[in-house]
């Protein structure tokens, strides 16, 4: 359908240059399927999502919902979301960078790299719900590790309450997809370190330590920081793992949007989901803008 339409457009596009003109459709028509699709399923939903935040129960314009973003309960949820995202982003970035370092020098098409790359992709992009199950099976009330610790070492993981189904319980499962995401995003930067830089350092009198502290780390800093931001954004916008782990309540912002959508009235307001969505988008735009700025600096250095 759309494919043949654009193929035809491409076909005609080429003939514009030749003298003979047959059915002469303008070439830009070939771009319409993409434009239409993106408009219908990306632009309109995004605008609608944010716009509903400005509409009250009767469909009239209101700033009431927006004001709710200043509500202490909502602010608290945003803070919890920030906290989870920040902790898992920083820890994930450090651990992930360490793994990237360990992978340096291995052939990119070798067996180890293939397995690590695929495993990282699965955990970072596919996991979601299944990662929640993995942690329920591991450190849930009846989890394998929970039982093992209790039976063998007499340690009760949940002596202070069942934290797995609360905000702190998100940390481990989130790390389980943050570290792999770091491996995927940071590896290219680390591989971009040119061997000449290490050799030049050595011929100029510097040792390995000097190379890492004075050359490699400063060069990698923007890219590392960018990756931290990306990880933060990833955790901040993640829904599936939290939803599968925590079936009720509004501990983090995405769960609060769930609550607002399935009309658990939050703070007695309707259309709060829109306002929350706006809040999330604002945070994401700030994060991704900073990310792309850092990224462009990295690219300039590593050409």
């Amino acid at each position: 359908m759309t494919a043949t339409a654009s193929a035809a457009a491409v076909h005609v596009a080429g003939d514009v240059g030749t003298a003979r003109s047959r059915r002469r459709l303008p070439a830009w028509l070939g771009l319409t399927p993409f434009a239409l699709y993106v408009l219908l399923f990306l632009a309109i939903p995004t605008v609608l999502a944010i716009a509903t935040g400005f509409v009250d129960g009767e469909g009239a314009f209101t700033l009431e919902n927006l004001a709710a973003l200043g509500d202490p309960v909502i602010l608290g949820t945003f803070l919890d979301s920030f906290w989870v995202s920040a902790v898992t982003a920083v820890a994930g970035a450090v651990l992930g960078a360490l793994v990237c370092y360990a992978l340096l020098g291995l052939r990119p098409d070798g067996a180890v790299r293939s397995v690590v790359d695929s495993a990282a992709s699965v955990l970072a992009q596919f996991g979601g719900v299944m990662l929640a199950f993995a942690f329920i099976a591991t450190i849930g009330l009846q989890g394998v590790v929970t039982v093992l610790l209790a039976d063998v070492f007499g340690i009760n993981l949940f002596a202070d309450g069942v934290w797995l189904y609360q905000v702190p319980g998100l940390l481990l499962p989130y790390l389980y997809f943050q570290v792999p995401l770091m491996v995927i995003t940071f590896m290219p930067s680390l591989e971009g370190l040119k061997p000449q830089w290490a050799e030049a350092t050595a011929t100029l009198g510097g040792n390995r330590f000097v190379f890492w502290t004075r050359i490699a780390m400063p060069i990698l800093a923007p890219s590392f920081l960018g990756s931290v931001l990306l990880l933060f954004a990833n955790a901040f916008s993640s829904y599936a793992t939290a939803a599968a782990l925590i079936s009720q309540g509004s501990q983090i912002v995405p769960l609060q949007i769930r609550g607002a959508l399935i009309s658990e009235t939050v703070l007695g307001r309707e259309n709060l989901a829109g306002a929350l969505a706006l809040g999330m988008v604002l945070v994401m735009v700030v994060l991704m803008t900073a990310y792309s700025l850092l990224q462009s600096r990295t690219e300039r250095w590593q050409r």
């Binding site: 995004t46 944010i50 959508l261």
Partner: peptide, 17 residues
């Protein structure tokens, strides 16, 4: 752009669509 728009946000606007 879809990286910047979390699925949970998209779904708010997808419901009417």
């Amino acid at each position: 752009v879809p990286i910047t728009i979390p699925a949970i946000v998209l779904v708010v606007g997808l419901a009417p669509v």
